[in-house]
Amino acid sequence: MRNIKLIIEYDGTNYFGWQKQPNQATIQETLEDSIKKVTKEDVNIIGSGRTDRGVHARGQVANFFTDSRIPSEKFKDAINANLPKDIAISHSEEVDSAFHSRYSAKGKEYRYLIYNRRVPSPLLRNLAYHVPQKLDFNIMRKSATDIVGTHDFRSFMASGSSVEDTTRTVYSVQLDKNYELIEFRINGNGFLYNMVRIVVGTLVDIGMGKICSSSIPEIILSRERKNAGHTAPPHGLYLERVLY
């Protein structure tokens, strides 16, 4: 069988996340239904990881196996013709049978958008986290650098995760501001459940003066979720790319 790799972009607003769930619209099931219309096969599409309800993606990666003889680069257009407007395949190619979108991944990059203005934006209501309180951007940017490195990030993991090894390496973080829009980027070898959203929530709390700007190293060492900030909402989060 052929192994087809896809790069997928989607607006997660109308979906209950990536993973299939009974009686709920999900990205995975929508893609599988669309692929079946093209290949006439029941396929199991493997994602690089789950995204939660409301989370978006510009570079989600998935793969599936098929007996179809459609040229690999043509899968993109054929599947897109059967997808709703809020999901699109940006690239398709045939890869080695050993490729696994999740287990072959070396890391990921996420982006998070914060809209910092007193009045909410109707245009960004599903695409960015609205924070009406004034944020100290310079303090946030300085504090963000304390995330970089190899640490036990248990303090930044939501409850309910069964992961035992909570050590991860963050390669880089970047915080930029364009008028009222703040963009946070983080690149690492892997992320714990809700880790990026908790990091962002902690930086927002620092920007509002609720948490001391120098406290991130102490929060990491404490390994206690209660010492970190709030969990930022899902709709500001984007999976930008998966590293292989």
Rank of each mutant, 00 (worst) to 15 (best):
L203I: 08
R102P: 02
R53N: 11
V38E: 11
Q174C: 14
V199R: 03
K106T: 07
E224S: 13
D176G: 00
K210S: 09
V173N: 10
K210C: 03
R111Q: 13
N194P: 00
Y171L: 15
G49S: 13
T202G: 04
K226H: 13
E9K: 15
R102H: 15
V43K: 00
K74Q: 14
I182C: 03
Y10F: 15
D52S: 09
D205G: 00
A78G: 04
R69F: 09
S34G: 08
T13F: 09
D11P: 06
A25G: 02
H100V: 05
N3F: 08
M1I: 11
D96Y: 04
M157E: 14
R58D: 11
K106R: 12
G54V: 07
A144V: 03
F75N: 00
Y112G: 03
D86F: 11
R53V: 14
A232P: 03
D205Q: 07
R197W: 07
I198C: 04
K20Q: 08
F64Y: 15
K74D: 12
A88N: 06
S34F: 02
P234R: 04
G54W: 00
R241T: 13
N63T: 06
Y110R: 09
V242M: 01
P22H: 11
G207M: 14
F156L: 14
E29P: 01
A232Q: 09
V173K: 05
D136E: 14
A88G: 07
I45Y: 01
R197I: 09
R154C: 06
I219L: 05
Y238D: 00
Q174V: 08
R154G: 01
Y179N: 15
V170N: 02
P71V: 10
S72H: 06
P122F: 05
G12H: 04
S161Q: 07
G47M: 09
H56Q: 03
E224A: 11
N126K: 06
K106C: 10
D165Y: 07
R125Q: 12
H151L: 02
Y129H: 15
N187W: 10
W18C: 03
S90H: 03
T166F: 02
F184S: 04
K134S: 12
D11C: 11
